[in-house]
Design a binder for these strands. Sequence first.
DNA 1: TGGCTTTGCGCAAAGCCTTGCGCAAAGCGA
DNA 2: TCGCTTTGCGCAAGGCTTTGCGCAAAGCCA
Lengths: 331, 331
Amino acid sequence: MTEVARAAGVSVSTVSHVVNGTRLVAPKTRERVQHAMRVLGYQHHPTARSLAAGSNQTIGLAITAASNPYWVELIQGIDGEATRAGLNLIIVDTRDDARHEAAAVANLIAHHIEGLVIAPAVGWRDVTLPLLRDHPIPYVVVDRIDPDLRVDQVGVENEAATAAVVDHLISLGHTRIGMLLGIEGLSTSSERLRGYHAAHQRAGLPVDRALLVDGLSTSDGGRRAAWELLELDRPPTAVFAANNNMTIGALAAFRAAGVKVPRDLAIAAFDDFAWADLFSPGLTTVAQPSAAIGARAVQLLLRRMNDPGAPPQAVRLPAEIMHRESCGCTP
Amino acid sequence: MTEVARAAGVSVSTVSHVVNGTRLVAPKTRERVQHAMRVLGYQHHPTARSLAAGSNQTIGLAITAASNPYWVELIQGIDGEATRAGLNLIIVDTRDDARHEAAAVANLIAHHIEGLVIAPAVGWRDVTLPLLRDHPIPYVVVDRIDPDLRVDQVGVENEAATAAVVDHLISLGHTRIGMLLGIEGLSTSSERLRGYHAAHQRAGLPVDRALLVDGLSTSDGGRRAAWELLELDRPPTAVFAANNNMTIGALAAFRAAGVKVPRDLAIAAFDDFAWADLFSPGLTTVAQPSAAIGARAVQLLLRRMNDPGAPPQAVRLPAEIMHRESCGCTP
DNA sequence: TGGCTTTGCGCAAAGCCTTGCGCAAAGCGA
DNA sequence: TCGCTTTGCGCAAGGCTTTGCGCAAAGCCA
């Protein structure tokens, strides 16, 4: 940098300002500096800049690395928006476990990240949240919104979307609709359940609690829960699965049981699959705008980084219902 | 740090050495320093360390962020191993496009990463590779191995694994085996094709070139290629798809055509699916050790970072064949 | 006890950039 | 032409560690 300054006949501070555009530099001078940089092959040193400026232009993302397409798209959305904003992104794996999550976040904090996007694990309120309170670092929560928390959050309209799909099933004449519930302690799980209830209430339909079975948000749990439903005295005529993993398990169970979809049983599910129309029949799903959620999260984070005192904002993005054949509406 | 030094009655250099264990410090002194650190709540500043040490303990990963489970597992493997080695990982999305890839890699280089793991895009040799030659940064290639290149590489035994599966189909009596080829220009594509040929040669079976159709490595390409096969005068009795996306497309095509698997057509595919046994019937696949490939890549990278002159090494990890029902061997 | 090897630690330079402060020159209106 | 506002840029402090060099104290052997 000193060399460039000398070559251009200016001071290093001017070179710095040319590089960063941080203050007015006469066009002629700027030209000279840029030329000198080119000739000398000057390479900016980001580390030194970070040290000097006390900021490293890096944000962290704490998320489970589970091989779930939903997460991948979310990450893409976050990465894309961060790149656009000129921010680096460091991703750490929480393994969807609060303790790992806390360790990972502590690590990020030690690296002096300037902001954090977190898709919290179950139980994070007792472990990771206190950490975040101690270190006043801007952060935004994605996917799992906690209405009690006064923090920036971005998620999908779980309740409304679920209600809409269940409405649809009810309108097709189903009165006994089973639901595979997501793991307890996740706001997404409870919100989707609320949507189920809301649709029933609107239709004046009673809810048989036997039709609500816990699928633990996993493929295996979904499989087991589906079996439970099938073995009821009065099994459901339709099933709503609250996430993609459970859907996979449930489909396997139905296939094994020889249940034909949608002839014997109508199915709808939360989370869209790239391969949703691969199944026979195509799956009716609720598609989340994953990438948009990620992008929005970064925008909220930027806002908070610039204005730490801003009032917390909880954003809900609408979901899209993908009508395919499994719900039985288009035979 | 200065404060800690003062509080412990030592110099900052001693504090530094205590923190890093870089030279002998008398136990008593170390104790004092550590105590002072605790009392003062000393926080290490990684940025400053990077600047001073001229190294930032960060490696880059250039990979497509496509929502393909294979990549996710690969990333997990890389991330896990990097974390274990105390390295930070910055991931950039190549969009599987050589130009984007080059830009992304340039960006990483500008950030002074100390090593790079790259899953190259088609055409990278003309765009990204020269970049890597200009900046002598240690790197290792994953997934797409180029035998002509004298660089560190990690991949799977594409040829042997493919040959084994095709052997299996042949042993079941199939003599007309279709293949959905991956996009041209990818070593994985050509190696898998070689495996197909090798199996035929071993069995003394001629190869009908009409049975080799281009699936472009995409789901849509796979669908189209599958249709092509079905419309042949003498369609195949078995099909091998060279990656997971094409498999998805092909299955959709077969379903639409009313082809029953494996009764009418046997199927086997490269790349395992978490949901492979969800399909009716379960898919016989070649499972790559994705996480292991990623971990191994980081190990190779560490080796090269420590010993830049070491001879380049190309590692092939064995794949595992997952026998399910689609190949028709267990009716 | 004297000379030599360890052991332990301080000194200070180096690493590269950012930025508040302030000065000088240029521009402008009267 | 004078005084005042802009415009443009230099000075130098600062940010936090690492690390080569070298000195002093301690330990060891004869």
